[in-house]
């Protein structure tokens, strides 16, 4: 499998009040083409710093990051890196630049110097993918949070990236907005085979991920399938994380002596397991 992102002995530190803070501590990680990788970790664990490093917004103080083989330190490649690996941030209002939806989506490819006919095609396709075509003439401020965030995603899609990093992209949305955006991201991964790096605080959102990476103090604490990760309830709680509600209830029931497997993720799974005792 081709590596989409290759992180080698990455370190990122900065100073504050003459005190040195290490945000990322000697991290090595490969993310493969087509993967859906969930990244969790408490506030300050280095998640957002990692996203910014991958996108070349900040530079490693040691080690290297390669995005499709290109080193983020290579200034000549930085635009190509950002085109290949786009990033969607938390606040939709900070990411929308134009006053009309389709103009906003066209902003990226215009800056890449894509010719007009091709821009038209990309804008239409991108809006189609996020199911916002009928809103193309609308003003972004008239849209809901979930709709705005989908426009931000369309703006990234119009650059035709192969990988998209979502940095808490659903944190500011209500449950229906969150579901709408998450569905759209899952579909991108499945149908367009876009590599997805999904940073979140909502454990429920990544139960379907291919792999989950848990960060703690700038380092990878554990990684594995959702089942493997969410089976480690106590370790997660130690680093101030939690497991999905249903997983937690299953864990509590298991502690009471019920023979339930670790890492139950959904209501259906738990029902199925409990029913065998009835």
């Amino acid at each position: 499998m081709q590596k989409a992102i290759e992180i080698k002995n990455l370190q990122y530190k900065y100073s504050r009040d003459e005190e040195e803070i290490i945000a990322i501590y000697n991290m090595s990680l490969d993310i493969y083409e087509g993967e859906f990788v969930g990244i969790i970790g408490h506030n300050g664990s280095g998640k957002s710093t990692l996203a910014k490093l991958i996108n070349g917004i900040i530079m490693p103080t040691a080690g290297d990051i390669f995005v499709y083989g290109m080193n983020t330190k290579d200034e000549e490649k930085i635009w190509e890196i950002r085109q290949k690996a786009g990033i969607v941030f938390q606040n939709p209002d900070n990411q929308i630049v134009a006053t009309i939806v389709e103009e906003d989506v066209a902003f990226g490819p215009e800056n890449l110097g894509v010719e007009p006919g091709e821009i038209r095609r990309r804008v239409d396709d991108s809006l189609e993918i996020v199911r916002m075509s009928e809103f193309k003439d609308r003003k972004p401020h008239q849209l809901s949070g979930g709709q705005k965030q989908r426009i931000a995603i369309a703006g990234i899609l119009a650059m035709e990236p192969r990988c998209i990093i979502f940095d808490e992209a659903t944190a500011m949305l209500d449950p229906s907005g969150r579901e709408e955006v998450l569905e759209c991201i899952k579909q991108l991964n499945k149908e367009n085979h876009t590599t997805v790096v999904y940073i979140t605080h909502y454990m429920e959102e990544i139960v379907d991920a291919d792999r989950i990476i848990v960060l703690n103090q700038g380092d990878i604490l554990m990684q594995g399938s959702p089942k493997e990760i969410f089976a480690r309830v106590e370790e997660l709680q130690e680093v101030f994380l939690d497991v999905p509600n249903i997983t937690h209830l299953a864990y509590e029931l298991k502690k009471e002596g019920l023979a339930i497997p670790d890492g139950i993720l959904t209501v259906d799974e738990l029902v199925e397991n409990l029913c065998q005792f009835n």
């Binding site: 970790g41 408490h42 506030n43 944190a171 500011m172 605080h201 454990m203 101030f240 994380l241």
Partner: peptide, 8 residues
């Protein structure tokens, strides 16, 4: 609590 980790 929007945007905070579970502990926060």
């Amino acid at each position: 609590t929007a945007g905070l980790d579970p502990y926060g």
